[in-house]
C-alpha cells in the first residue's frame, strides 16, 4: 500500500518533539550549572560567561568526592554479592532437588510481594541493635541478597540443557565448579540484567541511606546531594544543579555505553508481575 510521505514527516516531528521533552531538560541542567546565577532561568543552552563557580561551591561545601567513593563501594559490593549469591541460590532452586525446594521458592515469591513500607522501621531497629547505624555494613549487608535476582537466575538456568550438567558431573565436577565454570559463562544475558538492575537500584537509592546514615563522611552520593539541595547550604541555584549534574554523570555515562542492555534489562522487570 502506498503511504504518503507527509505521514512520515508528521511521525518524525512528533517523535522528535518527544525526544526534546525528555532530553532538553538535562541539557539545560548541564548548561545552567555553568551559567552565572542570574542567567539560570533562561532557556538557552549557551552561558554568556561559562564559569566553574557553581562546581567550586559544591566541592567546597559537600564531601562530594568521598560520597562518590562511598556510593561506588556500596553499589559494587551489593552488585557483586547479588550476582554470586543470586546465581548460587538460583542454581540450587532450579537444578538440584531437595525436600524444601518448593517451599523455598514459594517463600521467595512471597517476599517479592511484601511492600518495603512494612519492613522499613523494623529493619532500621535491627540496624540499631546490631550497632550498624553509621557504618558501611548497614548500607551493604541488607542488600547482599535479592529475591528478584534469584528469581531471574532461576528462570534463566531452567533453560540450560541438563546434558551439560550431567557431563560435568561424570567428569567429577562439584556443584560449585559446575555453577562457576559451566553455568556462568553461559549466562551472560542474565548476569548483565541482574547486574545492571542491582547496580542502578543501589546507586540511585536514597531512602535507606537517609534512614541509617547521619555521619557526612559515610553518606552516599544521592543522599549528600539531596541534603545539600534541601538544607540551607545551597542558597544559590547553580550549585544545586551542579551537584545534580555530578550525581547524574556516572549513571548517564554507563547508560551511553550500555544503552541497549539498560533498556532491555529494565523492560524485563515486567516479569515480576
Amino acid at each position: 500500500m502506498y503511504r504518503p510521505r507527509w505521514s512520515h514527516v508528521l511521525s518524525y516531528s512528533v517523535l522528535l518533539a518527544g525526544a526534546l521533552v525528555f532530553v532538553y531538560p538535562f541539557l539545560w541542567m548541564v548548561a545552567a550549572s555553568f551559567k552565572p546565577e542570574a542567567e539560570i532561568p533562561s532557556f538557552g543552552l549557551v552561558p554568556s560567561r561559562p564559569s566553574l563557580e557553581s562546581y567550586r561551591i559544591v566541592f567546597d561545601r559537600v564531601p562530594i568526592g568521598r560520597s562518590f567513593l562511598n556510593s561506588l563501594l556500596v553499589a559494587l559490593s551489593v552488585t557483586a554479592s547479588v550476582l554470586v549469591f543470586g546465581s548460587m541460590v538460583g542454581y540450587g532452586l532450579s537444578r538440584l532437588s531437595f525436600k524444601a525446594r518448593g517451599l523455598l521458592f514459594g517463600v521467595l515469591l512471597f517476599t517479592m510481594m511484601v511492600p518495603f513500607q512494612l519492613t522499613l522501621i523494623p529493619t532500621y531497629v535491627l540496624m540499631v541493635k546490631f550497632r550498624w547505624v553509621d557504618t558501611y555494613l548497614a548500607l551493604i549487608v541488607p542488600g547482599t541478597v535479592s529475591a528478584f535476582g534469584i528469581f531471574l537466575f532461576r528462570q534463566f538456568f531452567m533453560s540450560i540443557p541438563q546434558d551439560l550438567i550431567d557431563a560435568a558431573r561424570i567428569d567429577g565436577c562439584g556443584e560449585l565448579s559446575i555453577l562457576f565454570r559451566i553455568i556462568w559463562p553461559l549466562s551472560k544475558p542474565a548476569m548483565v540484567t541482574v547486574g545492571i538492575l542491582t547496580f542502578m537500584a543501589s546507586w540511585n537509592d536514597v531512602l535507606w541511606p537517609m534512614v541509617v546514615i547521619r555521619e557526612p563522611k559515610l553518606m552516599t552520593m544521592p543522599q549528600a546531594v539531596a541534603l545539600f539541595a534541601v538544607g540551607g547550604r545551597a542558597e544559590l541555584l547553580g550549585p544545586k544543579l551542579a551537584a545534580a549534574v555530578l550525581l547524574a554523570l556516572p549513571i548517564i555515562s554507563a547508560y551511553i555505553f550500555f544503552q541497549r542492555h539498560f533498556v532491555e534489562s529494565m523492560a524485563r522487570t515486567g516479569l515480576k508481575g
Binding site: 532530553v23 538535562f26 539531596a226 544545586k240 545534580a244 550525581l247 539498560f262 529494565m266
Partner: peptide, 21 residues
C-alpha cells in the same frame, strides 16, 4: 527509544532538583 529512556535511569534526586527549577 534511547532518548525517552534517559530519565528512567537517572536518580530521582537529580530529576527532582531539575524540576524544582
Amino acid at each position: 527509544r534511547a532518548a525517552y529512556f534517559v530519565p528512567v535511569v537517572v536518580s530521582g534526586v537529580v530529576v527532582t532538583i531539575l524540576w524544582q527549577q
